[in-house]
Simulated assay, not measured.
Amino acid sequence: MAVVYYASLDNKKLNSPLNKLKKLFKRLQPENIFEKGSLIAVKTHFGELGNTAFIRPIFLRPVIEILKNIKVKPFLTDTNTLYVGMRTNSVDHLHNAFLNGFNYSTLQVPVIIADGLRGENSISINIDGELLNEVKLASDIVHSDGMVCVSHFKGHEVSGFGGAIKNLSMGCASREGKLAMHSVTRPSVHTEKCTACGLCKDACASDAITISKYAEITEKCTGCARCIAVCPQGAIGINWDETAENTSLKMAEYAYGVSNALKGKILYINIAKEISPACDCYPGNDRPVCEDIGFFASTDPVAIDKACYDMVIKRLGYDPFNKIYDYIDPLIQLKHAEKLGLGCLDYELKVVK
């Protein structure tokens, strides 16, 4: 049985919630997990520009302070997105992060986009999954000496909800990996937008693009998705044709791959606050589906997500995620992750005041 530490937002007005986060993180004994001088990724989601539900940078400060005190070298990180937006490439992504408050002046640590300028820095890690035999991860995630995975617990339109498992999987995959989770076919060209400039052909790693009146992606395509990032017209799009169930299963297998790549040196914090109905990848957000609940910490990504999920249902008396997204069982990702050996659905909740 896993242990999940929990601190509510109930507080005396003179006691900062940040102190609760610090107590929670200390319970995980990071000094026993990370070696002095090691490079530790603090993986979070910087929020798409316009979204206001993402984790506020100030909540990362206690984590970073403790990491510095145990003499490791933390850095903030995220990966470029599969879709075209403000986080498609590292230049725009960093600008977006800084505008949302994730910058050196706020947190005194570097911000590194882990998969390269356009999401091309990818490393394949072999796994023994049911759907996948390898996962394609951001290179700077794989090269890190460990990770603190700080996740916003919220709803998600593909997996029902998103927490630590989603942050590990979609959040640590390269663009190629994200495509593998979301799609079973190669990207397609919107011919009405295409100007036949040839930038996609130049970027293609597999010589899979031909140019005539417009670009055409051939069967040589291996799904690296570089063409999506370089197209100045936004003419190359993703076919979101994988089932929600299979995407959830693949997310669990990608999370398993990340854990294996880092030899399990990952600590987890979930923040169940401003629990929005959809992903922070949207350039906006709806009202929360539940009141603010608090902070969770664990060494087990399955248990911490299950604890958050259970707490939301307990507060409301029903499952808001299944009510919104009735086509997917929100527990599919967790059950599969447990089956792979990534974590445990059974947990003991220890309250920290």
Rank of each mutant, 00 (worst) to 15 (best):
H93D: 11
E48S: 09
V135I: 10
S90E: 15
I55H: 02
P62Q: 02
S159F: 01
S122V: 15
H156Q: 05
F98L: 09
S139M: 09
F54E: 14
L99K: 12
I66K: 01
V142N: 06
M86C: 15
D78V: 04
D145I: 05
A164Q: 03
H93M: 06
R56T: 09
K71N: 15
N51I: 00
N69C: 13
A164M: 03
G160W: 01
I127P: 03
N103E: 12
L94Y: 08
S122L: 09
S151A: 10
N80M: 05
T106P: 06
E120V: 01
G47N: 04
N69T: 11
F59H: 08
T52E: 14
L117I: 02
Y104T: 06
M86D: 15
V109N: 08
L99G: 13
I127L: 06
D78P: 02
R87F: 03
P62C: 11
I141R: 06
D145Q: 04
I141L: 01
L76V: 10
D115P: 02
I55P: 03
F102N: 03
L76M: 12
S144Y: 05
K73L: 15
L117F: 05
E48C: 02
D115K: 02
E65C: 07
L67A: 09
L94M: 15
L94F: 07
Y104Q: 08
I70T: 10
S159C: 04
T52I: 12
T88W: 02
V109W: 06
V158S: 05
T79L: 11
R61T: 14
Y104I: 06
H95Y: 13
L132H: 05
T77H: 04
N133Q: 15
V72Q: 10
G163L: 10
K73H: 14
D78E: 15
T81L: 06
V111C: 09
L107E: 04
C149D: 06
R56D: 05
S139Q: 14
E65G: 08
G50Q: 11
I55C: 01
G85N: 15
I64E: 12
A97Y: 09
L132Y: 12
I58E: 15
K136Q: 13
K68H: 11
I113W: 07
G163S: 03
H95W: 11
M147L: 03
F75A: 00
N133K: 11
